[in-house]
């Protein structure tokens, strides 16, 4: 049975880009551990050799023609953000 430590919660939270308050860590650790316990019931079954199923459909990807169909909607799309300037979306400095 897996149990998730506070450190693991912190690591997952970082990968998930979620700020988790220190006082919430152990709550999440318990809850996530419980979910993992539920999930690990899967281990009661040997699935060796079973083809994984990624999708309910056994069909293939459909393809679209190479046509430009989307007009410039910058004005409308940027009305969704309060942080734009000179046609750009603004964020805190990106350091490469």
């Amino acid at each position: 049975m897996s149990s998730i430590s506070n450190e693991t919660v912190e690591k997952i939270a970082r990968l998930s880009a979620l700020a988790i308050a220190p006082e919430e860590l152990s709550m999440y650790a318990t809850q996530l551990s419980n979910i993992l316990t539920l999930v690990e019931q899967m281990n009661t079954l040997d699935t060796t050799g079973i083809e994984p199923m990624a999708h309910p459909q056994a069909t293939n990807q459909r393809l679209r023609n190479d046509c430009v169909t989307e007009p410039d909607e910058r004005k409308e799309l940027q009305s969704l953000s309060a942080f734009t300037e000179a046609g750009l979306y603004l964020v805190n400095q990106v350091i490469e």
Binding site: C67, V68, R74, L77, G87
Partner: peptide, 19 residues
């Protein structure tokens, strides 16, 4: 994966559709 144009040098975000 979308029908937005790929031409180089367009005004910023004028070729970025909802997708």
């Amino acid at each position: 994966f979308s029908g937005a144009a790929t031409a180089y040098g367009a005004e910023p975000n004028t070729q970025a559709c909802a997708i």
